[in-house]
Design a protein around this nucleic acid. Structure first.
Lengths: 260, 260
DNA sequence: TTTTAATAGTGTACAGCGTACGATATTGAT
DNA sequence: ATCAATATCGTACGCTGTACACTATTAAAA
């Protein structure tokens, strides 16, 4: 049975369960019944469930049902839900490991953005677990390593490299979050965005003092209509990515500190 | 009693409860016992609770206890927890309403960033309600209106104005989230960051193949040590803000489209 | 071969959550 | 004095994560 206290070393061992050919400490003894499940299977099933039904479907009972086992049986493999989530996060981030082009940093940063955009689109529940510290597993660290390559040799300090990467990743995460929120908003009402606004216009006009928020009215309605359109999907993303690239430009193209 | 179905018009009426001198539709009749609480008081109490004890303390039972009433009594004033959260969000955002300088857009954007940084610091629970659509109340809309002023008259389209503002706000939100996460990580272990790493170094070295992640090791440890320091607080913020400003520069300082 | 110890699987139970519902108490209007 | 509206709130329900005890299965030890 998985121990119930929170034990970072144990979780670490689970995170690296594949990487090391001979595990330094055995995860389990040799006696006892054979396990009927594998941790990999549980994690993969949970990821699929989260992908398809969202974060709120990720309960221990639903995951157990999905793998065909009683709820409490999951605790044979993970110590608590948090540990399962940690394994899911690392697994998902591992999908985003790739070697980025180092021809020009703009190409590399753009590729990082695209890869992470796709990652969050594929696993929207990753957006909601942002507040936790990223697990130190092979997926997360491998992703970090390859993404840092793009910023290596450009005259940045280590801390600047980390900050620059975080800057890019935070932008992408926010962009996907905004995008998914807009999409959800549209699907939940089962109406076109325009129809929604028309339906609620009387309520809004009843309360919002006319002419008091001229800019918000003008810009907000323009943005609202636009985001209701079909081709809005990537605008905030492409717009923001351009700003990110231009923002990094003075730092990366004109190294104002001594070359290393 | 507050109606139990989700009714956007009702929530809208509550959001604008102060702004209109004569409410178009009365919120309640005249018969019956006098309410012993006010909605303002409940919202203010809940905000204080969230500020001091975090989002997880924001349960209906805790809020009720805090205002000195039975849990179910809150439902006399709000239809559901979501409605209370909506009112809290709008109230908190209202604190960030101010007239920004329009001398130079860099000054304005910097001021927006500082104000929002302070807002999220004061109300960290705002970070966790990001996934929801912002309520259309006087606080949120007023904040939006004043922030848009900074981008007005700079040659941007309405949609670009909205996107540029979102770009800035998303950056600040991410920066505060990262900052608070680092701070929480440090306080929860009751150890200095360095001591934490030393305590867990054996576990890490046991699992992470040495030399496999050279960049991640170098940059990660540099960043880790740095963020453990006392003066790290604002680095990612000031770094990112500089990138944001530089990223907006080509768009705002050299209008490539016809002046309006 | 028999015994023993370890472990997989799970049923039950508990505390905490949001909140539906109904009973009661209080008030202004009739 | 009666009535209708409304504030308050006790109880209860379904949901969550998960502690704990029990059984069944297996390999090692005797």
């Amino acid at each position: 049975m998985a121990p119930s206290e929170i034990d970072p070393a144990r979780t670490l061992a689970l995170l690296w369960r594949h990487q090391t050919p001979t595990p330094p400490t055995p995860l389990t003894g040799k006696q006892g019944p054979k396990p009927s499940l594998t941790l990999d299977n549980i994690v993969a099933t949970a990821i699929n469930l989260g992908d398809q039904e969202g974060l709120e479907a990720l309960t221990m009972r639903r995951v157990a049902q999905q793998v065909g086992v009683a709820p409490m049986s999951l605790y044979t493999y993970v110590a608590h839900k948090q540990e399962l989530m940690t394994l899911m996060i690392d697994q998902a981030c591992g999908e985003a490991i790739q070697t980025y082009p180092t021809t020009h940093w703009r190409v590399g940063v753009t590729a990082i953005a695209e890869t992470n955009w796709a990652l969050y689109q594929r696993h929207p529940w990753l957006l909601a677990v942002y507040s936790e510290r990223p697990p130190l597993g092979p997926g997360v660290i491998g992703k970090y390593e390859h993404e840092l390559q793009v910023f290596e040799g450009l005259g940045l300090t280590d801390i600047e490299m980390d900050a620059a990467l975080s800057f890019v990743l935070n932008f992408v995460r926010s962009a996907v979050a905004d995008h998914l929120q807009a999409a959800r908003q549209q699907s939940e009402s089962a109406l076109s965005n325009q129809a929604w606004w028309e339906a609620h216009a009387p309520d809004l006009e009843r309360w919002i003092p006319p002419g008091r928020y001229p800019l918000a009215e003008r810009v907000g309605s323009a943005a609202g209509e636009f985001y209701g359109g079909a081709y809005q999907a990537h605008f905030a993303y492409t717009f923001g990515l351009q700003r990110v690239l231009d923002g990094l430009e003075p730092l990366l193209s004109k190294p104002h500190r001594k070359a290393e």
